Lab assay of single mutants.
Amino acid sequence: KRLSEREFDPDIHCGVIDLDTKKPCTRSLTCKTHSLTQRRAVQGRRKRFDVLLAEHKNKTR
């Protein structure tokens, strides 16, 4: 699936709103397109961004 077609989940996706499409970014939490500050500011996550990021990195090892 293309990035734009993915169902957005704030707990596994970057989530920064794309200015062109007005939709949240569906790249992983480790997205290189958006800064850490931008990704931390995303609302609606179950846990703090840093906790989710650490969990994500542990899963992908």
Score class of each variant (00 low, 15 high):
Phe49Glu: 03
Phe49Leu: 13
Arg2Phe: 15
Gly44Val: 03
Arg48Cys: 12
Arg6Thr: 14
Ser35Cys: 05
Leu52Glu: 03
Leu19Phe: 09
Gln38Trp: 02
Pro10Glu: 03
Arg40Thr: 05
Glu7Gly: 13
Leu3Phe: 08
Glu7Asp: 11
His56Arg: 09
Arg46Lys: 10
His13Leu: 02
Cys31Pro: 00
Gly15Asn: 02
Arg48Leu: 14
Cys25Thr: 01
Lys22Gln: 07
Ser35Asn: 06
Gln43Thr: 14
Lys22Glu: 12
Arg40His: 04
Gly44Ser: 05
Gln43Ser: 13
Ile12Asn: 14
Leu3Ala: 10
Leu52Lys: 03
Thr21Leu: 09
Lys32Tyr: 05
Lys23Ser: 14
Thr60Met: 14
Asp11Ala: 06
Gln43Gly: 10
Val51Arg: 10
Leu52His: 04
Lys59Pro: 14
Ala41Tyr: 05
Arg39Glu: 01
Arg6Pro: 15
Glu55Ile: 04
Pro24Phe: 08
Arg39Cys: 01
Arg40Val: 08
Glu55Trp: 04
Ala41His: 08
Phe8Tyr: 12
Arg40Leu: 06
Lys57Ser: 08
Ser35Glu: 06
Arg46Asp: 05
Arg2Tyr: 15
Val42Gly: 01
Ser28Ala: 11
Cys31Gln: 02
Leu19Thr: 14
Val42Leu: 04
His13Gln: 06
His56Pro: 03
Ala41Leu: 11
Pro10Leu: 11
Arg39Val: 02
Pro10Ala: 08
Arg45Phe: 02
Arg61Ala: 12
Arg45Leu: 01
Ser28Met: 09
Asn58Arg: 10
Lys57His: 15
Glu7Val: 09
Asp50His: 03
Val51Phe: 07
Ile17Tyr: 10
Arg46Asn: 08
Thr33Leu: 10
Glu55Lys: 04
Leu36Val: 12
His13Pro: 00
Thr60Val: 08
Arg40Asn: 05
Lys32Gly: 14
Val51Asp: 09
Leu19Asn: 12
Ser35Lys: 05
Ser28Asn: 07
Gln38Met: 09
Leu19Asp: 08
Arg61Asn: 11
Val51Pro: 04
Thr21Cys: 07
Gln43Lys: 13
Thr21Pro: 09
Gly15Asp: 01
Arg6Glu: 13
Thr37Tyr: 05
Asp11Cys: 05
Pro10Gly: 07
Glu5Tyr: 09
His56Phe: 11
